[in-house]
Amino acid sequence: MYDAIKFTYNVSGDDFTRAGEASSDVKGKLKKMNVPPDAVRKVAISMYEGEINMVIHADGGQITVEITKDCITMILADKGPGIKDIDQAMQAGFSTAPDNIRTLGFGAGMGLPNMKKYSDDMKIETELGVGTTVTMKVFI
C-alpha cells in the first residue's frame, strides 16, 4: 500500500492533439500502484473529459491529483472565462464549444455530465472572468 501521493500537471491550451497526456500519465501510474481497474477507469475518464474541457474552454490550466489508500482526488483549476450557468452546463447535450471542436470528436455537451457520472463526488467553483476549479473524487 501507499501513503498520500501528489502529482501536478500543467495542461497546455494551445494544442488539442496533446490534450489527454496528463490523464494518460495518471492512468499509467494508478495501474502500476495496483489500484483496482474500475477505479482507474473512472479516474481516467473523468479526468480526461476535464482535461479536454480545459483545453477547449480555458486555454489550459493545472491539474493536481492526490492519491491516498481509499480515495483519488483530482483538482482541475483554470483561469478561463468561468461557467455562466452551472445547471445549464450540467445538462447532457448543452455545449458552448466552437464548431471546430465538434469536428475533432468533442463539444457534444457531454463533458461535465460524464465527469459527474464517473466521479463519486464532484464540486464546481467558478467565477466569471476569473476561472473555474473542478474537484472530483473517486473512492477506491
Binding site: T17, G20, S23, K27, R41, A44, Y48, I52
Partner: peptide, 15 residues
C-alpha cells in the same frame, strides 16, 4: 470515422 490522436486516447481511457 474520426481520425485524430484523441481517438487513441479515448480508447486508452476506456480500455
Amino acid at each position: 470515422g474520426l481520425c485524430n490522436p484523441q481517438v487513441i486516447r479515448t480508447a486508452e481511457m476506456m480500455d
